[in-house]
Simulated scan of single mutants.
Amino acid sequence: MHSLIASPFLDQHVLVRPGSRGGALLPAERYEELCVLDLAEPAPAWLADAAREQWGDLEVTGRPAGHFLLVRQPSTWGYGKASWEVNLGCNYKCKHCYLGLKVNSGMPWEDKRQCLDIMAEAGVLFLQVTGGEPTIDRDFMRAYRHAWHLGMMITVSTNGSLLWRQNLLDLFRECPPYRVTVSMYGASKASYDELTQRVGAWDQFVQGMSAARHARLPLRMSIVVTDDNGHEEQAMVDLCKSWGVEFEVFTNMTPTIYGGGEVLTAQSKEHLRLRKTFTGCNAGYTFFHMDPHGLVSICKIGRDDQISLPHEGIQGLARLGAIADRLMLRTGGCSGCSVAGACRVCRPLAKHYQEAKAPLAAYCQHGEKAG
């Protein structure tokens, strides 16, 4: 069981610790030294010093390196991050969910394991496991454990409803996550159950959060503000502060991944906020997304021209860059736009809004000016 990971990450080399947000950069020569290290030998003095300096409670002096260190090998693919919808099934039916239909389906275990192996080979160090609700998937625990043993720093995105389960808490204690991101849908039973369309959802959330905080999981809250709970925005913020957990507030609803606009009715118009100007991203180049069936796309939004990882293997990733370039082109209703350089959404997201026939004010500067 490793408590430290030395790994390439994009154009650098890093030393990270599962369950910790901290880390350290490694000079190339130090990383190369670890790559040829006899893991039966004690850790180099400089590594013990670095671990002690970064994590005061971690003492590795004199210990065989193989007892605590995992050294990840270089990858020629250059990917550092990925996200994976392990399943679209969910125990909630949230009005705002961008995934649309909650279909409880996915790959058999062997394909899941193969895809995780390919991700590791591609260089993925940071993996977000999401859904649907990932913790309800029958293979979640062994998939999580396999990714962890491959040396991935895992973020679990969850609604928190099952975090009270002892098997999950035991898993996270044995194999610490990088982060557990919990979506928050209200500050009272009435608003929470209404938005999730599940009686008793609030009670499950409270139970899960109590257990997660007691277990000292590395929590981060995603406060989702909608028409149902907009009046409780400050109460949700105050609750997160009282728990001592970091949080981020999300107010803008997006269409479903199928271009459906039905979820936009959950938008609180009073809370619709201007997004920051979109300045580009490395989708398809340094990170990618995989759906429950092993279909890889440049990100969660731009899902056109997906690549089947189980069928094509790692070589299929070679096409992602060209797909990204094509999907980011200003086409359709955005062709020739005079203010495209200051647009606040990427082209794939704009396409979803256009397919959903959403009001321009939801995503376009022209709509803002008209309003």
Rank of each mutant, 00 (worst) to 15 (best):
Y98F: 15
Y98M: 06
Y98A: 07
Y98S: 10
L99F: 11
L99W: 08
L99P: 03
G100H: 04
G100M: 05
L101K: 13
L101S: 11
L101A: 14
L101E: 11
L101G: 07
V103G: 08
V103C: 09
V103K: 12
V103I: 14
N104Y: 14
N104F: 15
S105V: 11
S105G: 12
G106W: 05
G106V: 09
G106P: 08
M107L: 15
M107Q: 14
P108H: 08
P108L: 08
P108Q: 08
W109A: 10
W109D: 07
E110S: 14
E110A: 15
E110L: 11
E110P: 03
E110G: 07
E110Q: 14
D111M: 12
D111T: 10
D111Q: 14
K112A: 10
K112C: 15
K112D: 08
R113L: 15
R113K: 15
C115D: 09
C115H: 05
C115P: 04
C115E: 04
C115A: 15
C115Q: 05
L116F: 03
L116Q: 02
L116H: 01
L116S: 02
D117G: 15
D117H: 12
D117A: 15
D117F: 07
I118F: 11
I118A: 08
I118M: 14
M119V: 02
M119Y: 04
M119K: 04
A120K: 07
A120W: 01
E121R: 05
E121H: 02
E121C: 02
E121I: 01
A122G: 03
A122V: 03
G123D: 06
G123T: 06
G123K: 06
V124F: 02
V124H: 04
L125N: 01
L125I: 00
F126Y: 09
F126I: 01
F126H: 04
F126E: 04
F126K: 00
L127V: 01
L127I: 01
Q128F: 01
Q128M: 03
V129Q: 00
V129L: 15
